[in-house]
């Protein structure tokens, strides 16, 4: 099946390390991944190691020590307009309203006010924040703030959306609701999503494919195809079977 899918993004032998206390620490080691067009790809990994670094490399926030990235076959250098990001720590500008935050990307790109307002409004509506356009982030709940983050990433009209544990800071109930929401949004506006998480259930619930990373340094340990219909039933025997399989194969985080 996956043979005839179009490769959107190609990661080729990516390695990255940091110097911590005068010691070189490998974070990512020789990772190669093909990301298909419009797929929901989940990168699952234990602990703190590698996952976010990998995402930051794709987003152009960090430059890998070695390895190359190709978007539509063309080599990537630094950040690219076609790639957008939803941050774990939200990173909403507190001095901007919901509208101001969502239209920020197009505004930086020089899109005229009327057009960018229209785009922003479309995604504010899509994430269910209609009526909150003039609110400031500190007036919103955690789930609503992350909706703003998602709308902001979409409003820049990217081809690839990176999501770095976007629901990691939400309470369990809001988290379930947001997992359903992101699935609905993705089905309405198909984009390639690369979603990083350390939560196995979340990975099986959301991913078309799951890339399981090993503990430090991160390498690709296994790739799982999840061929379950959406929205997925978390107590379906097949769901539980995959969940168990992934779980048993996951390295223990320290």
């Amino acid at each position: 099946m996956s043979m005839d899918k179009k490769i959107k993004l190609k990661l080729e032998n990516i390695s990255h390390s940091f110097v911590v206390n005068n010691e070189v620490q490998d974070a990512v080691s020789d990772v190669s991944i093909d990301v298909y067009d419009n797929e929901f790809l989940v990168i699952l990994g234990p602990g703190r190691c590698g996952k976010s670094v990998l995402l930051n490399i794709i987003g152009g926030l960090e430059k890998p020590i070695s390895g190359n990235l190709y978007l539509d076959g063309e080599k990537l250098q630094g950040s690219d307009k076609r790639i957008s990001m939803v941050f774990q720590k939200l990173a909403l500008m507190p001095w901007k309203t919901v509208m101001g935050n969502v239209e920020f990307g197009p505004q930086l790109a020089g899109v005229d006010k009327e057009t960018r307002r229209k785009t922003a409004q479309k995604y504010i509506d899509l994430v269910g924040l209609t009526g909150f356009e003039k609110a400031y982030p500190n007036q919103l709940s955690g789930g609503m703030k992350q909706r703003v983050g998602i709308a902001r990433a979409y409003a820049n009209n990217p081809e690839i959306l990176l999501m770095d544990e976007p629901f990691g800071q939400l309470d369990a109930q809001t988290r379930y609701a947001m997992e359903e929401e992101i699935q609905r949004i993705w089905q309405t506006e198909k984009r390639t999503i690369i979603f990083v998480t350390n939560n196995i259930e979340e990975a099986v619930y959301l991913g078309d494919r799951i890339i399981l990373l090993s503990e430090c340094p991160a390498t690709v340990k296994q790739i799982y195809d999840v061929n379950l219909p959406r929205p997925r039933d978390t107590i379906h025997p097949e769901f539980l079977r995959i969940r168990k399989e992934v779980s048993e194969n996951t390295d223990l985080a320290l």
Partner: peptide, 14 residues
């Protein structure tokens, strides 16, 4: 200045 805000700028090619 929060580095995260500047990262948002980098992502949006500011």
């Amino acid at each position: 200045v929060e580095k995260l805000y500047l990262d948002v700028g980098t992502i949006f090619n500011a």
